[in-house]
């Protein structure tokens, strides 16, 4: 475990805290894509099936449980308590394409053809594009609350920090070789490119995030 990886994990946890804060503080899930949240739950469930077969560390296991639990909870809140505030009309991205993309690549790129490996590969490719419905929603509405923009930023930062961790591990761990993880992770980070730019610009002006329409 190096510092980049640890900061990446922390950034991921912080993003979820920010999302829950946003929902509680505004008592609404306006501006949050239910589709992206559902995809994340699918990502965590398919990736962390190995909870039952492999033990890496207590830290890893607890984080896996935390990610599954919190993403289930967010989805639960959006579907029950705050359902009235969900902005369905702006959450129109067609996720069939994203799931199809992940299925095709999961069948083409696994390390070995076992159920767990294929599902794990599926989760990596799906995670790489799961933010698209959220970014699309932001694009169509043009702006979002500060907490929502911080949430998306922390979520993007997480994979960017992982990418630095991969470079570090590649340099210092002779056997470390995870090409699928790297390519999917870099794709994931690249999708945030525009968002990062407008986020940083809006923070420099001390204003809330607005996208050009």
């Amino acid at each position: 475990m190096n510092l980049f990886r640890l900061c990446g994990d922390l950034s991921h946890v912080i993003s979820i805290v920010l999302l829950l804060l946003k929902i509680r503080a505004t008592r609404s899930c306006v501006g949050i894509s239910l589709k992206t949240q559902a995809l994340y739950l699918l990502v965590f469930v398919t990736r962390y099936l190995d909870l039952f077969v492999t033990f890496i560390s207590l830290y890893n296991s607890l984080m896996k449980v935390l990610f599954i639990a919190t993403s289930s909870y967010v989805l639960y809140l959006m579907l029950t308590k705050y359902r009235q505030t969900y902005d369905k009309d702006h959450d129109t991205f067609r996720i069939q394409f994203l799931v199809g993309f992940a299925i095709v690549l999961a069948l083409l790129t696994p390390h070995r053809y076992t159920m767990l490996e294929v599902l794990w590969t599926f989760s990596l490719w799906l995670e790489s594009v799961a933010i698209l419905p959220q970014l699309f929603m932001l694009q169509t509405t043009g702006e979002c609350e500060n907490l929502t923009s911080h949430y998306i930023f922390a979520l993007g930062l997480y994979r960017a920090l992982y990418a630095v961790n991969w470079v570090y591990r590649y340099l210092f761990e002779p056997d470390y070789w995870q090409p699928v993880t790297w390519v999917a992770g870099i794709l994931q980070t690249a999708l945030y490119g525009d968002f990062f730019y407008y986020y940083v610009m809006s923070k420099r002006r001390g204003k809330k995030l607005k996208l050009p329409t």
């Binding site: 990886r5 994990d9 991921h12 190995d50 492999t54 890496i56 560390s57 890893n60 984080m63 896996k64 990610f67 390390h111 070995r112 490996e117 794990w120 992982y162 961790n165 761990e173 056997d175 470390y176 070789w177 995870q178 993880t181």
Partner: peptide
């Protein structure tokens, strides 16, 4: 073999 099957990241 390589460490590829070792998934110690999240």
């Amino acid at each position: 073999s390589s460490k590829e099957s070792e998934k110690d990241e999240l």
